[in-house]
Simulated scan of single mutants.
Amino acid sequence: MLKALLTFALSRRPIILLGLLVLIGGGLLAFSKLNIEAYPNPAPVILEITAQAPGLSAEEMERYYTIPMEVGLAVTPGVDVIRSTSFYGLSFVRVRFNYGVDYYFAKTQAAIGLQQNVSLPSGASASIQGSSLVGEIYRYQLVGPPGFGLTNLRTLQDWVMQRRLLTVPGVVQVVAWGGTTKTYDVEVDLHKLDAYNVTLPQVLTAIGNANVNVGGRTINVGQQSVDVRGVGLIGTVADIENVVLSSQAGGVPVLVKDVAKASLGYLPRLGRAGRDNDNDVVTGIVIMNRTLRTNEVVARVTAEMQKINSDGTLPPGVRVVPFYDRGSLVSVTTHTVLHNLVFGCLLVFLIQWIFLGNLRSAIIVGANIPFALLFSVTILYLMGESANL
Rank of each mutant, 00 (worst) to 15 (best):
residue 5 L to D: 11
residue 10 L to P: 06
residue 11 S to G: 12
residue 13 R to I: 11
residue 15 I to S: 09
residue 15 I to W: 07
residue 19 G to D: 10
residue 24 I to N: 03
residue 28 L to E: 10
residue 35 N to E: 12
residue 38 A to G: 09
residue 39 Y to M: 11
residue 40 P to T: 00
residue 44 P to D: 04
residue 47 L to I: 01
residue 63 R to W: 05
residue 86 S to M: 01
residue 90 L to C: 03
residue 92 F to N: 05
residue 99 Y to N: 15
residue 100 G to W: 00
residue 101 V to H: 03
residue 103 Y to F: 12
residue 111 A to T: 14
residue 119 S to W: 09
residue 120 L to S: 02
residue 122 S to C: 15
residue 133 L to A: 14
residue 134 V to P: 09
residue 139 R to W: 11
residue 143 V to C: 07
residue 146 P to H: 03
residue 146 P to Q: 05
residue 147 G to T: 07
residue 170 G to N: 07
residue 174 V to W: 00
residue 186 V to S: 03
residue 194 D to L: 15
residue 196 Y to E: 12
residue 197 N to F: 09
residue 210 A to H: 05
residue 231 V to P: 10
residue 240 I to Y: 03
residue 246 S to Y: 08
residue 248 Q to Y: 07
residue 255 L to E: 12
residue 256 V to I: 08
residue 259 V to W: 06
residue 259 V to L: 05
residue 268 P to C: 05
residue 274 G to M: 01
residue 278 D to H: 07
residue 278 D to V: 14
residue 281 V to P: 01
residue 284 G to N: 06
residue 287 I to T: 07
residue 294 T to E: 09
residue 297 V to P: 05
residue 298 V to D: 01
residue 299 A to T: 14
residue 301 V to L: 00
residue 302 T to A: 11
residue 311 D to R: 04
residue 319 R to T: 14
residue 320 V to P: 06
residue 320 V to M: 00
residue 323 F to T: 10
residue 324 Y to G: 13
residue 325 D to V: 13
residue 326 R to P: 10
residue 341 L to I: 08
residue 348 V to R: 00
residue 357 G to M: 07
residue 359 L to N: 10
residue 359 L to Q: 09
residue 367 A to Y: 09
residue 369 I to Y: 00
residue 369 I to R: 02
residue 369 I to C: 06
residue 372 A to Q: 07
residue 372 A to W: 03
residue 374 L to I: 06
residue 376 S to N: 12
residue 383 M to F: 11
residue 384 G to R: 02
residue 385 E to P: 13
residue 385 E to Q: 15
residue 385 E to H: 15
